[in-house]
């Protein structure tokens, strides 16, 4: 690793990486003045219950929170979420992240998930090594795999491929990266695991 093969890669600004747009809060008239909102909260009697005369004095029952599940709006796992998981992995030879080096790109991530927790789901990532003879492509791929296996539910199948035409020995690397046995064997290697730990240390 001492010999840097690609000494001068193109670097993207960390800020220009795709991010999830800040979920904009709906501006309602009530939230204009947060102080007033907290003041209005101080009424001991909840005015919204007033139509129901009986509820003025009967306090909300304690068992209220038990029982039926509340309907929560689900946020499905999408490609942006996967991107956020892997984009901040450090490159093993540059002090930069995979996102900055454009090794992983948002359009190259596919997620197939029916949303049903009992069905299999799949993530396919196509990575672009910085140069076509990059010898560290397998290491990078392994790093991504370890990260995703730690971060995704077990029902997900993870496929990591090199982007078509981005590497001299594309098929060979693809095979290696998606071979369960070989990945498991690699993770037994303590030295390799500590290199990967270092790569994952920058994850946000």
């Amino acid at each position: 690793m001492s010999d840097v093969i690609n000494a001068n890669p193109t670097i993207l600004d960390d800020k220009s990486l795709p991010t999830r747009a800040e979920e904009t809060e709906k501006v309602t008239e009530r939230s204009l003045n947060p102080h007033l909102a907290s003041l209005l909260d101080l009424s001991l009697v909840d005015s919204s219950n007033l139509n129901d005369q009986e509820s003025i004095h009967s306090t909300p029952s304690l068992e209220n929170d038990e029982g039926s599940d509340e309907e929560e709006e689900a946020d499905p796992i999408d490609s942006q979420e996967i991107f956020d998981l892997v984009a901040h992995i450090s490159d093993p030879e540059h002090p930069l992240t995979l996102g900055q080096l454009a090794v992983v790109n948002l359009p190259d991530i596919q997620v197939r998930d029916s949303g049903n927790k009992n069905e299999m789901a799949e993530v396919i990532i196509r990575i672009t090594p910085t140069i076509t003879h990059c010898s560290l492509a397998t290491l990078i791929g392994l790093g991504i795999r370890v990260r995703l296996e730690r971060c995704l539910p077990v029902r997900y199948r993870i496929t990591i491929l090199l982007k078509e035409g981005s590497h001299q020995s594309e098929n060979q690397v693809n095979k290696q990266l998606n071979d369960k046995e070989r990945v498991a064997a690699a993770c037994e290697n303590d030295q390799l695991l500590s290199v990967i730990s270092k790569m994952l240390a920058t994850c946000k």
Partner: peptide, 21 residues
């Protein structure tokens, strides 16, 4: 916590990931 990785809420998943890591 591996079950929590499948939580419907993104913020919870993220926290589970960080905690597991």
């Amino acid at each position: 916590l591996s079950d929590v990785l499948d939580d419907p809420k993104r913020s919870v998943r993220k926290a589970a990931i960080d905690t597991r890591q």
